[in-house]
């Protein structure tokens, strides 16, 4: 059995750890709230942009509307944007995303390239021997749209030049504090029919779409909207992922704190026993000594 002194040190260090984990838990809790607010703030633009795109889509002759809307006949290359965190200590958050990526894309018929957003994801992808063509790590804690827009721009660029024929977005959807789900979304070509990307954007229409006048022309306008809308989706996914990351970290840290408390309890008990044993031994020694003296 360890000595009393060693045990005292051990108890102290476990207590210190639990203090750190509790602090991390508190920090994450406030970050989750901020990230959720940021997601909510982007919703109105996304909703409006989506409505405008739908209206345009309902116009006659939309087959050749825009290259970013066109389905390619054969898919020769696939690009996946994978969003993870830069830091660990978030439970299974990062590995869940990568595991999901494996499940979904390892058997993909076309070769897959990855864009990694987040250091952990990049490292895990490279370790698994995936082809990572770009890496956006160390995003600021509360990224602005400008911080993230480069990711969307690169995806659009790759798609436009024909290096890839479809782009997917892989991120973690924030359901609630205890539940975050790795999710995949098709980013390009943009599909205006069906649900696809709409989900909670709300389908409230602003009346029947009449024929538009375009200034200067439709092509230029779509050139403005579609890449922005794509970049915004990436931005939203980043914010959702961040909310998820912080929530996952919060839960992981809470568990760590609880475990540390349990451990301290167990160690304290063992320590008390050792200490008591020592005292008992000392008393026995003294009593034995005294008796030996008086017996003379």
């Amino acid at each position: 059995m360890a000595s009393a002194r060693e045990m005292r040190l051990r108890i102290k260090s476990v207590k210190n750890i639990s203090q750190v984990t509790r602090a991390l838990e508190t920090v994450s809790a406030s970050k989750v709230r901020k990230a959720i607010n940021a997601v909510t703030a982007t919703r109105s633009y996304a909703t409006k942009a989506w409505q405008v795109l739908r209206h345009v889509a309902e116009q006659p002759g939309r087959e050749s509307l825009h290259p970013l809307l066109a389905q390619r006949k054969s898919v020769n290359n696939t690009l996946v944007v994978v969003i993870t965190g830069d830091r660990g200590l978030a439970g299974a958050y990062n590995s869940n995303v990568i595991r999901f990526a494996s499940q979904r894309f390892d058997l993909n018929p076309a070769p897959v390239k990855y864009i990694a957003v987040g250091r952990k994801g990049r490292d895990l992808l490279i370790r698994r021997g995936k082809k990572v063509i770009a890496d956006f790590s160390n995003l600021p804690a509360a990224p602005s749209f400008a911080d993230v827009s480069a990711v969307g721009r690169l995806a659009v660029e790759e798609f436009k030049t024909g290096t890839v024929d479809e782009v997917y977005l892989l991120y973690t959807d924030f359901v609630n504090m205890g539940r975050q789900i790795a999710t995949v979304k098709k980013l390009l070509p943009l599909e205006l029919e069906g649900e696809g990307l709409v989900e909670d954007f709300g389908n409230k229409s602003t009346g029947p779409a009449a024929a538009y006048e375009y200034e200067p022309d439709m092509r230029v306008i779509l050139d403005e909207i579609i890449p922005r809308f794509t970049a915004l989706q990436v931005y939203q996914a980043v914010l959702e992922s961040q909310a998820s990351e912080h929530a996952a970290r919060m839960i992981a840290m809470r568990n760590a704190t609880d475990n540390a408390k349990e451990l301290v309890g167990a160690l304290q008990l063992a320590y008390n026993k050792v200490r008591q044993q020592g005292i008992t031994n000392d008393i026995l020694d003294i009593v034995g000594g005294a008796e030996a003296l008086s017996a003379k």
Binding site: A211, Y212, E213, E215, P216, V220, I221
Partner: peptide
């Protein structure tokens, strides 16, 4: 500030999409 110049929009304006 439309692409083709300043544009005042009153109620019942015809549908326009402009940069």
């Amino acid at each position: 500030p439309g692409a083709a110049g300043e544009m005042g929009v009153l109620p019942k304006h015809a549908p326009v999409l402009t940069t």
